[in-house]
């Protein structure tokens, strides 16, 4: 039995916190042995409170600033590339695959960073209504997004479950099962970045423990499932979600502009043109 080398905590509201339940679980990798927080229902509630606040802060920063904060994140990952590669290899990836994954991650962050101050021009437009009115449709971020990351050991996959929503100004609660070690390592970069506290909370645990709470929590505006659940799980989530007309998306498209559309609410404003 190897010694426990690393203990990770959840990353909530800009701080590393233990699960309020005190419960943890362990994950054994090739070279290291991790102790990880087992997120409880109460932890979810705390994360939502923080995310609501984080949403206010993050969505009111300028697109220009959001772009720079995202770009800065790519620089940090680039700087920590070796340690990510090492961790991926510890999960069993070949060095080549690990490097490729980190390169793709950086590419994608840079792509979304550049989108942060442009998506409104692609998703919104003026509408040519027939009367004397100025009419414009533009988008607001939907709010607090709960994102269940996929089971692939991949920083890029983890990022692709976060970037589309956070780029448009949503706050994100990212929840990982298989990917927890990677996600909580990533939290360190977030902590060192300029993301406002609560804009991105990172949790680890067993999703089935919190499935009910997540899907019923009215203040979570959207649940994004990047992991294939069994039909009972999906059904339970969608049934719970219906109680507050919550949006649930499963395996959403990550292609180009499609990737951000589910996280946007379209607001159309009319005003007369007169003297």
């Amino acid at each position: 039995m190897i010694d426990i080398k690393k203990t990770y905590k959840n990353y909530v509201d800009g701080k590393y916190v233990r699960s309020e339940s005190g419960k943890t679980y362990t994950k054994e990798l090739k070279n290291e042995f991790y102790e990880l927080p087992l997120t409880s229902k109460k932890d979810i509630r705390d994360a939502v409170t923080s995310s609501k606040d984080g949403f206010m802060k993050w969505s009111s920063t300028t697109p220009y600033l959001r772009m720079q904060i995202l770009y800065r994140l790519s620089e940090m990952i680039e700087g920590n590339k070796e340690s990510y590669v090492e961790l991926l290899m510890d999960h069993g990836l070949t060095k080549q695959k690990a490097i490729k994954d980190i390169d793709e991650s950086i590419q994608n962050i840079v792509w979304f960073a550049g989108l942060a101050d442009k998506w409104e021009q692609m998703a919104g437009n003026l509408n040519p209504v027939s009367e004397e009115y100025f009419n414009i449709s533009h988008q607001n971020p939907i709010g607090v997004v709960f994102s269940l990351s996929g089971s692939n050991i991949s920083l890029n996959d983890l990022l692709m479950s976060i970037l589309p929503s956070i780029t448009v100004g949503c706050s994100v609660i990212s929840y990982s099962e298989e990917n927890s070690v990677l996600a909580l390592k990533f939290a360190e970069d977030i902590n060192n970045s300029d993301f406002p506290s609560g804009s991105l909370n990172i949790l680890s645990g067993k999703f089935e423990n919190v499935l009910d709470d997540v899907s019923k929590h009215v203040e979570i505006n959207l649940v994004a499932l990047h992991k294939e659940l069994d039909n009972d799980g999906l059904k339970a989530i969608e049934q719970n979600a219906s109680e507050s007309v919550k949006r649930v998306i499963s395996q959403p498209s990550l292609e180009g502009l499609s990737s951000i559309l589910p996280y946007l609410e379209t607001k159309t404003v009319w005003h007369p043109k007169g003297t």
Binding site: E265, K267, T268, V269, W270
Partner: peptide
Amino acid sequence: AGVVWANT
């Protein structure tokens, strides 16, 4: 709100 009518 999805639609905002201003002065109408």
